[in-house]
Design a binder for these strands. Structure first.
Length: 436
RNA sequence: UCCCGAGUAGCUCAGCUGGCAGAGCAAGUGGCUGUUAACCACUGGGUCGUAGGUUCAAGUCCUACCUCGGGAGCCA
């Protein structure tokens, strides 16, 4: 890569290529340990952390005291020889020849000891520098790239959905309202309806962007702003949809295992749990899932949607994600196609991640019949005029079509084995958090 | 919206039946040539969330409020 400021700069992740050579590293002081006339400086540059060993005998009094005085997270430049050494974390260490202070850090709020989550979230802009958060967001990067690579590789066209929308897509959830000149606009809670238009125009499409829910949810699985990928395919039914979903999720898991071994180790993820994420995934009819819940004696009431505990019980029966399909139509959205074999059922499915992580995908086949869709809009008490353009899709060459939405943060939390989704996005937006 | 829980040093927390405000880490000073969240010694650091009440005496008991955390519902 071209270096615009420093022609001699190399990165920690490339140290192996420079064994026994003298190099310059630019970064920040992660931590230091003094030992009298010997000092250990941990330099962090965003690609990794390397231990730099400096002895007073080698560098002299002036450089040594300059380095000895430096504070945590000060910006520093270190020049020295790259040595392989088993005692060094990472396998390589630098024998310091020169040390330069680029800028001194004030007292850094995040010490190497323990902190509470509130404090760390208040300092999220600095917390990103720590090892674990760095690893998580690198895995997020892999997942997002895998999402794009998968659909691009399958011949999908990226069609971006608008973020300002005129009304509720699904009616039920609370929307964030904003002024739009003389009018009101709402932040999108799903791009799906627009993807249905896209599917009729391009055959296979997906959108990937932020989504907003104004629900007052305070749980480890909820953000008010989260990222969702939503594919939609014309001439595809529920079975095709589930096959797409399981191949998609398997691909993502494989990419993370292929590219992020080091990061998974940093966050102490049990990777055997990831090795099993391979299509095909078990598929359960709603009634079969209900049967499991009956056997396990949960408080589940037949006909209802599954609660958080129900999802955990169902998914704990399997070593990989499970797809539950044909929910009662009454608990699902108006646009879901009804099962021609049982009109009380919707041709929708949820994918429940393993290890109790709950729903990561919701999707299904869409209602493609104009009259049935009209009656559902009426039955759900939705304003018909707002859906005129959507109904047009049923007037002008309607076809069976299906799609789904996958929540990125829940997927990251699951693959990383994290307790809470707030660490899976650089700057989380929660009910009680709008800063930093 | 509902149900729990918590607010004490910069951070993480302890503080018993009401009786002088504590520890570890961080910061500062000194020491140490192989440290792995280094270690050892010393130093500084407090409106106990806010308001009111009970009491000779409140961090501690009571009431209200504020803020935050966990969970439910809803969802991805």
């Amino acid at each position: 890569m071209k270096q615009f400021i420093n022609t001699d700069k190399i990165y920690v992740e490339d140290l192996g290529k420079h064994a026994d050579k003298v190099v310059s590293l630019y970064g920040w002081l992660y931590n230091k340990r003094g030992k009298g006339k010997l000092a250990f400086l941990l330099l962090r540059d965003g690609t990794g952390i390397v231990q730099c060993v400096m002895s007073k005998a080698d560098v002299g009094e002036e450089i040594f005291s300059r380095a000895d005085d430096v504070t945590q997270e000060s910006a520093i430049k270190i020049t020295g020889k790259v040595n392989a050494d088993d005692r060094a974390p990472g396998g390589f260490e630098i024998h310091v020849q020169n040390f330069e202070l680029v800028s001194r850090s004030e007292e850094y709020p995040i010490s190497p000891k323990e902190h509470g989550t509130t404090f760390l979230m208040d300092h999220r802009h600095l917390w990103l520098r720590s090892k674990k958060q760095n690893a998580i967001l690198r895995i997020r990067h892999t997942i997002i790239k895998a999402v794009r690579d998968f659909f691009d590789g399958e011949g999908f066209t990226l069609i971006d959905a608008p973020i300002f929308t005129p009304a509720a897509c699904e009616g039920t959830s609370t929307l964030f309202e904003t002024d739009y000149f003389e009018d009101k606009a709402y932040l999108t809670q799903s791009g799906q309806l627009y993807m249905e238009a896209g599917a009729a125009a391009f055959g296979k499409v997906y959108c990937f962007g932020p989504t907003f829910r104004a629900e007052k949810s305070k749980t480890r699985r909820h953000l008010t702003e989260f990222w969702m990928v939503e594919p939609e395919v014309a001439y595809m039914d529920l079975n095709g949809d589930m096959e797409l979903a399981e191949n998609f999720v398997s691909y993502i898991a494989k990419c993370v295992l292929d590219k992020n071994r080091k990061e998974l180790e940093t966050i102490e993820r049990d990777t055997t749990k990831l090795e099993t994420i391979k299509a095909p995934f078990p598929r359960l009819h709603y009634d079969e899932a209900a049967e499991i819940l009956k056997k396990e004696a949960t408080e589940f009431v037949y006909g209802d949607d599954f609660g958080a505990n129900d999802e955990t019980v169902i998914s704990s029966q399997f070593d990989r994600p499970v797809m539950v399909h044909r929910y009662p139509a009454a608990v699902k959205a108006f646009y879901m196609k009804e099962d021609p074999e049982d009109k009380t059922r919707a041709l929708g499915f949820d994918m429940l991640a393993s290890e109790g992580y709950g729903e990561i995908i919701g999707g299904g086949q869409r209602e493609d019949n104009l009259d049935i869709l009209l009656s559902k809009i009426k039955a759900h008490d939705l304003p018909e005029e707002s859906f005129n353009w959507y109904l047009d899709l049923r007037r002008y060459g309607t076809v069976p079509h299906a799609g789904f939405g996958l929540g990125i943060e829940r997927t990251v939390a699951w693959l990383c084995g994290l307790h809470h989704v707030r660490e899976t996005i650089p700057f989380a937006r929660l009910m009680h958090r709008l800063n930093p």
